[in-house]
Design a protein around this nucleic acid. Structure first.
Lengths: 235, 235
DNA sequence: TTTGAAATTTTGATATATCATGCAACAGAA
DNA sequence: TTCTGTTGCATGATATATCAAAATTTCAAA
């Protein structure tokens, strides 16, 4: 018979609803990922507070939190901006992403439950469908879920948080690169490699495929930056 | 004769002094690194504000900033604590550190100027002296400088910031492990390897030596955690 | 002694007030 | 016109006030 203690352990903690600051942070993150802010755009405390109808305190907290994480850029005058990517920055982030995401993928291969793997496979199939339908906004979201379901299977929270930072840092450009990027069916082929290697629990191959995936995004970013940078280059 | 403009160019920009929140953050970081907070200690906004004689706003900002970075722990009730390390956490941080610091070291090998290398060599010699003198607090500081001078030579700001986060997460335990840890002369021998490989600009060897260094710290942490955990285990 | 509910205190969350700084539009002098 | 100084608004930094939730203590009844 179940004792009182067993019953207690079956209960789930009441989810305290997030603080305002956390809600603001979440909204800002989503906006960045969705590319709703233009790179270089200035975000003032008051504009955010006004738009989300909160006071300055939680707006400021969320803004500075993301800035300290590197997702937003804090300039010396104290104002916060949506960062613009440079070539150097893309190169740096790409290198960091490769080592972090390879590590997460390898660990996930070891630790993922069969259910988790099945879930990832399902996400990938869904993703292929959306790709055929050219539904890019769903594609961005599914791609995020696909990768982070994999990475979370590593059971390494800090690692996942760091990877998320990296993704957010390039987030505002995803919208810019996507229409063309998605044309390259290489990305889809490569996702298949990830899934297959994961099913075989082959760490080396998963890591290799993840690396390819990251490099594809990096290439897309570089060419999109070059395109937008060129016109202004002329004196 | 010097023109007015020449005189102007000789001036250096006024360094805007940090905001209060940044100063609080710096002090908290230093306190964590120096092990002045006990692992598990609760840090309230008001206690920090009171101790540093600032209002709640900058104290709160600094505290939450470090919490969002993972240096301090934010519990669901909103209070901030100095994190306690578990075996899993040490294992995770060690794996992350190895990939990040190896990457930084490899890049540094490519990019470091001769001056920077000379500086690192000098720091290491200083460090050896302090080791002989058993001046552990200087040792901790010099070890930090040694590693981060190397990593900063990578010219990868985001990477360095992430590595710093990792160091801070184990910071409060450095004091605990040091007296014994420093006894192991293996650490010193290994530092020599780092320096030698760096001078030869041999990326693979630098990365390997850095990895060894990280594993030594990890081993020391594990055995120190085991020691302190055992006594309380009895019911 | 133990239990548990009420009272008290602590503490976090948020709003508002205030101040200093930065920036930009504008007006007057060169 | 162009440069420079001034004025006023926008904005960040910080302090304080207020409220609500959480933790702690108190105290009386079982």
């Amino acid at each position: 018979m179940a004792t009182m203690t067993d019953a207690l352990e079956s209960l789930t903690p009441i989810g305290r609803s997030d603080t305002l600051a956390q809600k603001v942070r979440t909204q800002l993150k989503e906006a960045v990922m969705a590319g709703r802010f233009a790179p270089g755009e200035k975000l003032t405390i008051r504009s955010i507070a006004g738009a989300l109808e909160v006071s300055l305190t939680p707006a400021r907290e969320a803004l500075y939190n993301l800035a300290s994480e590197g997702v937003l850029e804090l300039r010396p005058n104290g104002s916060v901006y949506v960062p613009e990517l440079t070539m150097d920055r893309i190169a740096e982030l790409t290198k960091i992403r490769i080592v972090l995401e390879s590590l997460a993928a390898r660990e996930a291969v070891t630790r993922a439950s069969n259910d988790e793997i099945a879930n990832i496979v399902a996400l990938n199939e869904n993703l292929i469908q959306r790709h055929e339908q050219q539904d890019y906004s769903a594609l961005i979201s599914l791609n995020w879920q696909f990768h982070f379901t994999l990475y979370r299977a590593s059971r390494m929270e800090t690692l996942v948080r760091m990877i998320e930072s990296c993704w957010l840092m390039t987030g505002s450009y995803l919208n810019v690169i996507y229409p063309q990027f998605a044309e390259v069916s290489e990305g889809i082929t490569n996702h298949q490699q990830i899934v297959r290697a994961l099913e075989r629990r082959d760490g080396d191959r998963v890591a290799a495929a993840i690396t390819t995936d990251i490099n594809l995004v990096s290439d897309a970013l570089i060419s999109s930056i070059k395109q937008t940078a060129k016109p202004e280059q002329d004196g």
